[in-house]
Design a protein around this nucleic acid. Structure first.
Lengths: 141, 141
DNA sequence: TATTGTTATACTCTATAACTATA
DNA sequence: TATAGTTATAGAGTATAACAATA
């Protein structure tokens, strides 16, 4: 009634809306979606490949390729781990930091823009509920 | 304060949560994400390639490949258009309909489960706000 | 001329399996 | 033996550019 849609349909549509915004902002910053995720994850400091696999939900070999390409574009560098000679630490370069800062600022603006037309009280309630729903999702942003 | 996160960060986390659920349910139904999107779009009836491109946000050549692979898996068929001899209509097969019905039911359940722990009033408000936000998003579900 | 769709080509992303080196 | 990471290989998805056929 009255054009209402179910919760599931609404969530799927929101997912596509968010994906298209994310991809779009990425393109403007010359970052693919997985590259942007990688850089966001590295924002807190260098990490080992295994740890990145867990955060990003990728197989080891997939991450090897992703890091290879990001390294070719001078977004990240591989460094030897001081503690474990098998391990590698992946760190952002200055160019990577610059790209992700731009991406982050632009994406934040675009996403907040999606809520612009909501009355402030409704927006606040929505954001609070959102925070509850994603409490357990790793901080990839 | 109090573990609150901003609206943009919340939306990004929700996007990743939704993507992982969507991908997961797709895998169980042996559908890739783009294949599931394609089948959902065809649920209302056969469509031409150009129309599908617009709905799915893909280039013509990308869609050609997607439909090729879906056709190889017997999920869709290409039919000649009765009105325009250049055009092609893409339609679901019985196997495609079966797969997407299963996918749809399972995904709906999983997504509604995300809201399970919210108090009913909060859930209703959230769903209503959601509906407002995605009013202009094409119905890909 | 414009539109519909395909082909050729190239790149990114992802996974599985087998491998090397270190713990 | 177990863990950290790479290599080899294969397949899906996407885009740009050039093309054929029809409107």
């Amino acid at each position: 009634m009255d054009g209402e849609i179910g919760a599931a349909a609404g969530l799927v549509r929101l997912m596509f809306l968010l994906q298209s915004v994310y991809t779009d902002v990425g393109r403007a910053a010359e970052l693919t979606v997985p590259q942007a995720q990688l850089l966001c994850t590295l924002n807190d400091g260098p990490q080992g490949m295994a740890s990145l696999c867990a955060t990003l939900g990728l197989e080891k070999s997939s991450l090897t390729g992703l890091v290879d390409r990001a390294e070719q574009r001078d977004l990240v560098v591989r460094q030897p781990s001081p503690d474990d000679r098998r391990a590698v630490l992946v760190a952002m370069t200055k160019a990577g930091a610059k790209a992700i800062n731009r991406f982050h600022a632009e994406l934040t603006g675009r996403l907040e823009g999606l809520l612009d037309e909501l009355p402030p009280a409704e927006r606040a309630r929505f954001t609070r509920t959102l925070g509850r729903m994603v409490a357990d999702v790793p901080a990839v942003f």
